[in-house]
Each structure stands twice: as C-alpha cells, then as structure tokens.
Design a protein around this nucleic acid. Sequence first.
DNA 1: TATTGTTATACTCTATAACTATA
DNA 2: TATAGTTATAGAGTATAACAATA
Lengths: 144, 144
Amino acid sequence: MPAKTTGASDLASSLRPALLRLTRLVRNQRVDTSITLTQLSAMGALLKHGPMSAGELAAAEQVQPPSMTKVLANLEERGLVVREAHPTDGRQVILDITDAGRTLLTEERRSRDAWLSRRLGVLDAEELALLERVVPVLDKLAEK
Amino acid sequence: MPAKTTGASDLASSLRPALLRLTRLVRNQRVDTSITLTQLSAMGALLKHGPMSAGELAAAEQVQPPSMTKVLANLEERGLVVREAHPTDGRQVILDITDAGRTLLTEERRSRDAWLSRRLGVLDAEELALLERVVPVLDKLAEK
DNA sequence: TATTGTTATACTCTATAACTATA
DNA sequence: TATAGTTATAGAGTATAACAATA
C-alpha cells in the first residue's frame, strides 16, 4: 500500500509549516551576505525566462510591483541587470540580466548549492528522486 | 524510465527558488490578519509536540531565540500560549498552547486550508500523491 | 563559567496608498 | 480613464550583540 491518501485539507495543513521552516533554513544560509535570496531569485527568473517587464517579473516572483522596484533598483545599481525601454509602450520597462549578473548568479549558486547539497545528503536515493519530481509540482502550485 | 536523475546540485538550484515563491504565496494568504503564519506555526509545533522550552521551540521552528521571544510575547499577551516554570531549572521557560490557542489554531487552519486546498485543485491525482509523500522529506530536510 | 532567555537595536522583505507618466 | 511603474511609508520577520538570571 503506497502512500495512504489523506484529504487535501490535511495535506495543506502539513505542507504549510514544512515550507515555512525549510525556507527559513534556506534563506538564512547566506553564503555571501552581499546578495540576498530574493535578489538571486529575481535574477534567476530573468536568466531562465529571458527579458521581461518589471510587472511580469513581479508576478513571476509572487511579489507586488513596489517590492520588485526595490529589488531591481539594487540590482541595477550593481550592474547585475539593465533596464531597457519597451519598443512601443513608453510606460513599460524591460529588464535583462547582464553578463556580470550571469557570472555572479553562477558563482552564488555554486556556493549555495554546496550547502544545500550537503543538507540533501541526509536523504536516501528514494527521497532524493521524490524531491526531484516534486519541484515542477511546487512551481505549478506557485504559478497561480 | 522514471525521473531522469539530475545531480544534487541541479536539484538544489531548482528547489531553492521554488520554495521561495511558493512560501511567499502561502504567507501572503492572510485569511485573518490578526495572526501571522509565523505565530500559527509556533502554536502548531506546541500542539503537535507538546509543551517545550523556548529554546527548543526556537530550534524546532528554525529561528533564533530572540525571534521566538517576540513571537511568544505576542501569543502570551493574547492568551494563546502560557509560560510555566521549569520544575527544576529556573532559567528555562516551558510553553504550552491554551484552549483558546487550540480553538484559534483550528479555525485558522480551516480557513487557510480552504484556500490552499483550492490551490491544490490545479494538481492532478498523481501530483497530489507525490506532494503528500514529499512533506515528510521536507520536514526531514529542515530538521537539521 | 556555561546556559537560558530577554532586551536593545537594526536590517531585510514585503505590503498598501498615493503619485507620475504614458496609453 | 486605465495601466505600468515609482515613491513614500509602515509593519512583519528576523538577526546579532549585550545583558540578566540561574545552573
């Protein structure tokens, strides 16, 4: 008998605190304190999905536009992303990651991954496989 | 061929932003703004594991002791948890959830679960089963 | 001395409301 | 008028450092 079927409500109740605690653990793992997990994630979205408007990026990252404005101001100041004018709509701002951003993202991921990979070491092969398969499910859930 | 095996490093890279975004979505779902997800999670830990010291609770919740002090001060003020003296160690403070805390926790879970359960509706049966099985894995990862 | 918890302080993250510029 | 983004402001969440009380 594989995985007893609990209700969606039970799943919700157990998933919520599990996400909260694990995210705290991951967020506090500040390898290089000069860049935060939030900034890293925004840069990662640009790298993964390509250039997009500030509004689109805010939506993709599940934050409100003013929050993204702050993140972007910081990233632009450091030359990690660039703002470009939208070709036809003067209101929109198109963001793209720079080469410096790509380099930093790669380096940061390497050191952070080293830490998380070590944590992942407490899991057995079956648990790792399970976790791997669930990542797209988490993405789908957050997509809205 | 089920689930191509990627490296632990790739898994870390994809898991991190997925956790961040989904937690933002869940945290911002403030059904009743009078209590926060952090407070709810602390009460949930007391309900699940029984009375424990402030330090133990901080460790279980993956926060530093001063952060937990703040959370507990708020919860105690509202009569949702109680502080009791440790029988033999005068330094320690033992926390327990009150009946009022239990009641509020149950109600909050109901309304929050209703929302998350609706979100879970975008998943198919296989994805739900997968998610259910991964919750203990996330807990194990966060346990440290 | 070492440990438990609290106080003091500060920074990150994020939100809502109000505003500006463009459509 | 409606939309995209920014500025202003505030609150939640969390940390580190310093302290008090007890072991």
